[in-house]
């Protein structure tokens, strides 16, 4: 296993081949904000918030650190003026969908993002894919997936699978940055398998 050395924010870090820039930074204790990253899941590159500036042989480019492989002798800057500006815009765009999501509100303070900059479109889901990927990759239950595409893309439970699996699992619930997942689940439950909800006092059981 060959070792790779490069620089993040002025400090020299060591990585092994196959690591991503984000992975190396986290190991070295350098903070890069993320929304769609999860240690148990494959990199997704969905939220773009972990964007950093990478200097290769004097050329600077912007890359998404969660999917950018560590390279020898690159110089990574995690908080340049440009990076901060882009993160601010990303946050503002996400907040048009989920203005009150705690993680977004916290990050917005750091980057000075204005939640009212763009016209509101409260869909609440920010397409981080954590629930979908966790359900596929970790629990292997495949109870939730994406449907449609582009601006119409949303998460959707498969009622038949959700009815059997979800009540005893719910491992995806704490992952959702906006609580939209929980709402989607309650909706699916009410429409597709209400018996599970009504098994309480009203039915006289």
């Amino acid at each position: 296993m060959s070792e790779i050395q490069f620089e993040i924010d002025g400090s020299i870090v060591t990585a092994t081949e196959g690591m991503t820039v984000l992975g190396v930074a986290q190991k070295a204790g350098i903070y890069i904000p993320t929304l769609c990253h999860h240690e148990k899941l494959e990199p997704f590159g969905g939220c773009r918030l972990c964007i950093v500036e990478v200097e290769v042989k004097g050329w600077t480019k912007l890359v998404v650190s969660c999917v950018y492989p560590a390279e020898k002798d690159i110089i990574v800057r995690t908080r340049s003026e440009k990076v901060d500006r882009i993160r601010k815009t990303i946050l503002e765009l996400l907040m048009a969908h989920a203005p009150d999501a705690p993680e977004l509100v916290k990050l917005a303070k750091v980057y000075g993002a204005d939640k009212d900059r763009y016209e509101k479109d409260p869909s609440f889901c920010i397409h981080c894919g954590l629930c979908v990927r966790y359900c596929n990759e970790v629990t292997g239950k495949n109870a939730i997936g994406f449907v449609d595409r582009g601006i119409n893309k949303e998460i959707s439970f498969i009622p038949q699978i959700a009815a059997v699996e979800c009540n005893d699992c719910k491992q995806c619930f704490p992952l959702c940055p906006t609580s939209y997942l929980q709402a989607a689940f309650v909706l699916t439950q009410a429409l597709a398998f209400p018996s599970a909800v009504n098994s309480g006092p009203e039915t006289g059981e």
Partner: peptide
């Protein structure tokens, strides 16, 4: 879709994603 999922061993959520895409 359920039948295809069963026969091909492809999860239904993936087929649903493709069919709506």
């Amino acid at each position: 879709l359920a039948r295809v999922s069963e026969r091909l061993a492809v999860p239904l959520n993936r087929i649903q994603h493709i069919a709506t895409f």
